[in-house]
Design a protein around this nucleic acid. Structure first.
Lengths: 185, 185
DNA sequence: ACCTGAACACCGTTCAAGT
DNA sequence: ACCTGAACACCGTTCAAGT
């Protein structure tokens, strides 16, 4: 039987992951170290490596979990403009909840590039509804994602100025530009 | 007189800066360490701190120099659409020359947020020509910058797929969307 | 004025050993 | 099976000492 030096339950991947996300929310990704995480879990640093191959692998796991949690607009018959807006707003809101982790995702798009992810499937569906031809879906979705995540990232970094309502308004303007640009295609 | 352990000329800020930029071009910002930089300059790591307050301060200096080097479209009477396109293309080309450093700038927009910088002055001028009212200049320029640098960053991170010509085409589409979105305002 | 060596307080991770 | 301690190869930076 494993001897836990700290409490009854043994260390679990889930516990590692959620504690790491909390520390990241509090102090940024650069503030997370395997040693601090272990201390927070009241465990030897090396114990973590029994559940996770490396720090990078742990961050990849966290990327997965927050990406999967992103709420998506329902597939109903509301106009595509509204659905696209809803998707972008959901992304925005979710990023504001975990800004440091979304910055990390933004810096490591490889963790989110799988086109089978619900995020991309939803975006494809909405773009099809807007009239984007099948062979342009990939390209157009890449552009839109770059725009939205670029904006959200800039906001996270304090590069969008003004009071909160003003920033909200700026985000609306950004969305209008995207939607107008798509419609004028 | 200072005793240089390595050669005739004493260490200079310029030499530190250009060598650091070269190392960053070769191995990314995360591949740069003060110790490696010192080794490359054939100098004791601590000598660097006589010319630069910290690693962060050095990176800030490098941000400045590459930002200033960005070529800007001339202030002539070509249509605003063309000038905006030229500015974005210049940004794009310049970022491709120093991708790692531009990624760093993207992650640290505070080094580039001074509105007196030629980059912003040029963008303001072009947006005025496009009919954006004075009180919307800041907001609109923030959105455009977020879009363009978001796209360029995604490309740098390999998140825009396809052969080089195809990526070029995707960038064109992105610019069309921005210009159409602006024109439809 | 400019440079240096030793030292401090951190990292991520390997490896052999414990239960 | 799970956990640990010591150790390795790195960091950025402070500080006192050299010329």
């Amino acid at each position: 039987m494993a001897v836990s030096a700290r409490r009854g339950a043994p260390l679990s991947l889930d516990e590692i992951r959620s504690t790491a996300l909390r520390l990241i929310d509090e102090g940024g990704v650069e503030g997370l170290s395997m040693r601090k995480l272990a201390a927070e879990l009241d465990v030897n640093p090396m114990s973590l490596y029994h559940h996770v191959a490396s720090k990078e692998a742990l961050l990849a796991r966290i990327c997965e979990t927050i990406t999967v949690r992103l709420p998506l607009p329902p597939d109903d018959d509301t106009p595509w403009e509204e659905q696209l807006r809803a998707l972008a707003l959901s992304y925005h809101r979710h990023a504001q909840q975990h800004p440091a982790m979304w910055s990390y995702v933004h810096n490591h798009p490889e963790f989110v590039e799988d086109r089978q992810l619900p995020l991309w499937q939803a975006l494809y569906r909405i773009l099809r509804a807007s009239g984007v031809p099948e062979e342009e879906l990939r390209r157009t979705s890449e552009v839109l994602h770059a725009f939205v995540s670029g904006f959200v990232f800039a906001e996270t970094r304090g590069h969008v100025t003004g009071a909160p309502e003003e920033i909200e308004h700026t985000f609306d303007i950004a969305l209008d530009m995207i939607i107008n640009g798509l419609a004028a295609r």
